[in-house]
Design a protein around this nucleic acid. Structure first.
Length: 257
DNA sequence: CCAAATGTTTTCCC
DNA sequence: CGGGAAAACATTTG
């Protein structure tokens, strides 16, 4: 899924609906709060924001939260900003639709369609995002280090924690650690301030590049590299793979220390 | 048939 | 109570 980068791509796509009024809505009741449809009908979309991995559709009524889970995705005006997610089906089956918002005739494609085969995602009203940490594009080295230096878990697990920094997912964490030269299983409190600074610099740069390229699967440690474990593109050492923080982790034992 | 998959939440154990 | 690790969740794909 979708990490913060995908959420940002979808946020920008959905933003074209700003100013339109929701004329009709449909949800899979299993993934939405009760009374969702009548609550959003006739609301006008005023802005589309992102909080970490969550897309927030503001209206003159409630704010609609889109939580993508592992396989959620969005189609806007019949167009998919991200056609195929790795680790998810490339198909687009109507049976997997979880939310449709129309801003015009109901016989046209919905303005926003949320489709999620695995159904780990959900839809919310006025979601509370106050517990999220600073955004991955905005966090500073000092604020990050303040948290990191007090945690004993693996640095990988800490960066995955949305209360620490919002938006990073499994692929992006492996990517930034690879660029920063920090081994993922190192204890967070062993990460120096200098290293945290490098981490934040790398985060800003590489996330920007990956966003432009199309999301979290476009880095050096992409899904193919994760599966095949070729030699490290930086120094030729054999890449390694293990479970860290409960997730598949790939790193270079040579330049990540 | 089996294993693994980009996330969040819950449960359990120190 | 708090931190951390592991399990659970539902389904598809290789």
């Amino acid at each position: 899924m979708p990490e913060g980068l995908e959420a940002e791509i979808w946020r920008a796509a959905i933003a074209v609906t700003t100013g339109r009024t929701i004329t009709a809505a449909w949800v899979d009741e299993r993934v939405a709060p009760p009374g969702f449809v009548p609550t959003v009908r006739d609301a006008t979309i005023t802005a589309v924001r992102r909080a970490g991995k969550v897309v927030l559709v503001d209206t003159d009524g409630p704010t609609i939260g889109l939580h993508f889970g592992m396989t959620g995705r969005v189609v806007v005006d019949g167009w998919a900003p991200i056609v195929r997610l790795s680790y998810a089906s490339g198909r687009d089956d109507a049976a997997w639709n979880r939310l449709c918002l129309w801003t015009g005739p109901i016989d046209r494609p919905p303005a926003v369609r949320f489709n999620d085969p695995r159904r780990f995602g959900h839809v919310s009203l006025d979601p509370d995002v106050s517990a999220l940490g600073p955004d991955m594009f905005a966090i500073t080295a000092s604020s990050l280090h303040e948290v990191v230096c007090r945690r004993r878990a693996a640095v990988k697990a800490v960066l995955l924690d949305q209360h620490v920094v919002a938006g990073l997912g499994n692929l992006c964490v492996d990517e930034v650690l690879w660029w920063a030269g920090i081994v993922p299983h190192r204890t967070a409190d062993q990460v120096t301030f200098d290293e945290t600074r490098r981490l934040v610099t790398v985060m800003r740069r590489r996330l920007r590049v990956m966003l432009r390229r199309g999301g979290s699967t476009t880095g050096v440690i992409d899904p193919l590299v994760r599966a095949e474990l070729p030699a490290c593109p930086r120094d030729g050492a054999p890449l390694r793979r293990a479970q860290i923080g409960g997730r598949t982790t790939v790193w270079c034992p040579e330049h990540q220390r």
